[in-house]
Every structure is written in structure tokens, then in C-alpha cells.
């Protein structure tokens, strides 16, 4: 704890020196009633770009996301934080069109993956979801063997031709998810028999087995103990070398540990977005400041 606070202090100091008007920082905070996004939403080197995204539930009766614009950069981990019900899960589910399955849900705006609009009528959602993988809040392995859990995705997409290739891919995926040593002797046993943390890593292995370009994680550690969480966070660090990762989290510590950029959502609005350090150390918006200092949420 002591060390951690020291680091933060150090970072604050560096931030403060970067701030052109350090003394007036408090008064510079954007008023809490301003709903426009503060901060740099766009990055030059983006993998996914969302522009003016609106999401409605119940056939347009309820608006869940209001005019959100943000980019997900290449090889970047972007964290989405905010109080419960702020729409961060809804937003992340738009990114691989998982909301299509919800009756009465409508998405407006543009979401680009590289240069293609994923909500274009011509886009087939099946290959899209192969390109944008998703890890869910509750570990949800298939009630099949560990091996079949990993092999299922590659098989249906035709990424593997024979048993040997499948074996290799399964081993490789499990190794990248840091699960290989724990399960290599029981690949034929059901995936549901693993512990919670192992199950979640199995789900991550299942996602990366399809070799996606973007991985969406919807509170991947909310059901896990601190040790399992630490393992997964290390894994995310490792994975960002190859993938772009968007992670929804309730834990601000986790966001600060794993992400490069952070987006703060509040009641369907993207309030503030920026480099993680900046969000946590010198937020620009009053709401962000209140949230990260624990005044609400």
C-alpha cells in the first residue's frame, strides 16, 4: 500500500509539472452538468472507431447509450469504467453486435473495424464475431471437454484441417492463456469442472483460439478472487502485444493496472476519455473526479 501510494504521488507530481496551470487545476474541472465527452476520444492509429453511437432498448423506449464517440487503438487496452447501469456493458456488446440477440435493441451511429462499418447491411455477423472475440462476465465454458471448448471455434471456422493441427492450436491457445500446465493432463475432462479463474482463462483461450483482432472483455474478473484476477491481468498485459483489448471493469485499480486509456461512462454518456494516468490522477471532469475519489458509484 505504501509503495503504491508513493508511485501515485510520484505520478501526480509528474502530471502536475506537465499541467500548464497546476495551481488552478481544481477550478478547471468541467461542470458536472456538462454531458459532452471531455478528453481525446480519437487516436490516429485506431483499430475500431465508434462515432455518435446511440443504443435503444425496448423498441426505442429506453435510451441506453447516448452519442458515444471513441476509438480503440491498435495494441492498446482500453478500460471502460463507470457506476452500475451506466451503459458500459451495453456499449462493449455493440462492438461485436452481441446486442443483435436482444429483442427490441437498436443501435445507431457508425462503428468501424479498420475501414468497414460493422453495422453495414452487407456485413455478415458470423465472421465479424470471429474477428472480434468476447469474454463474458461469468465464466461460461461449454459443458464439453476442455479440448472441445478450445477446438470448437477453430473447427466451425475451418481454421484447422486435421487432428494434428487442432491439437497444436489447442495447446498453443492454452499456453497463451497460461492454462496449459494446469490442464494438460486432463484435456478430456469437462471444462465446467475447473475452478472459476481457470474457467475464465479457458474462455480467454477459447477466444484467442479463433485468432481475433479485437478482444472484448466484459468484467472478466468480477467473479474471481484476487489471485486469479492477478493471473488474468498479467495475461491481458501479454495479449495486448497482439490484440486490441476493450475491458469493462468495476475495479478502478484494475483499470489503472491494465489499461493505457480509460473511458468513464455515466448514465449512457461517455463523460471523459483519456490516458489512464490522466483519468485517475488529474481528471478533467467533475463527475470523473467524484467517481474515482469514491464520492459516488
Amino acid at each position: 500500500m505504501y509503495q503504491a501510494s508513493e508511485t501515485i504521488n510520484h505520478k501526480v507530481e509528474t502530471k502536475m509539472t506537465e499541467n500548464p496551470l497546476p495551481g488552478k487545476r481544481k477550478s478547471q474541472l468541467v461542470d458536472r452538468n456538462v454531458r459532452e465527452t471531455v478528453g481525446q476520444a480519437k487516436v490516429p492509429n485506431f483499430r475500431m472507431r465508434c462515432e455518435n453511437v446511440n443504443v435503444y432498448y425496448q423498441f426505442g423506449e429506453k435510451k441506453a447509450i447516448n452519442n458515444v464517440t471513441l476509438d480503440i487503438g491498435k495494441n492498446e487496452v482500453i478500460a471502460m469504467i463507470g457506476p452500475s447501469g451506466c451503459g458500459k456493458s451495453t456499449f462493449i456488446r455493440c462492438l461485436n453486435r452481441m446486442n443483435d440477440t436482444i429483442e427490441g435493441c437498436r443501435v445507431e451511429g457508425t462503428i468501424l473495424l479498420d475501414d468497414t462499418d460493422i453495422y453495414d447491411k452487407k456485413i455478415d455477423v458470423v465472421p465479424l464475431r470471429a474477428r472480434i472475440g468476447m469474454v463474458f462476465q461469468k465464466p461460461n465454458p461449454f459443458p464439453k471437454s476442455i479440448y472441445d471448448n478450445i477446438a470448437y471455434g477453430p473447427k466451425i471456422h475451418g481454421l484447422v484441417q486435421n487432428r494434428q493441427e487442432t491439437d497444436e492450436l489447442v495447446e498453443q491457445s492454452l499456453k497463451r492463456a497460461g492454462l496449459w500446465n494446469e490442464v494438460k493432463d486432463r484435456l478430456t475432462q469437462p471444462g465446467t469442472g475447473l475452478s472459476g479463474g481457470q474457467q475464465q482463462r479457458l474462455c480467454i483461450a477459447r477466444t484467442i483460439a479463433v485468432n481475433p483482432e479485437v478482444i472484448l472483455m466484459d468484467e472478466p474478473c468480477s467473479a474471481l478472487d484476487p489471485i486469479a484476477t492477478a493471473v488474468i491481468e498479467d495475461l491481458i498485459d501479454e495479449l495486448k502485444k497482439e490484440y486490441s483489448i476493450a475491458i469493462v471493469t468495476h475495479s478502478m485499480q484494475q483499470a489503472s493496472r491494465v489499461s493505457q486509456r480509460t473511458a468513464f461512462f455515466h448514465m449512457g454518456d461517455l463523460i471523459e476519455i483519456g490516458p489512464t494516468d490522466q483519468i485517475f490522477l488529474s481528471p478533467l471532469h467533475q463527475l470523473t473526479n467524484d467517481y474515482i475519489t469514491g464520492r459516488f458509484g
Binding site: M98, V126, P127, N140, Y152, I156, T207, V210
Partner: peptide
């Protein structure tokens, strides 16, 4: 459970594959 459906869709199974598998 819906989590199984989401898991199948999440790895890119089509709706028919999700149901059948």
C-alpha cells in the same frame, strides 16, 4: 442458460450452429 448461447455466438457460431451444437 443464456451464457451458453452467448459463449457460442461469441466465438462466431452462427445461430443454427449455436442451436445445433
Amino acid at each position: 442458460p443464456p451464457s451458453i448461447r452467448e459463449a457460442a455466438l461469441g466465438v462466431g457460431a452462427s445461430k443454427t450452429q449455436m442451436v445445433a451444437h
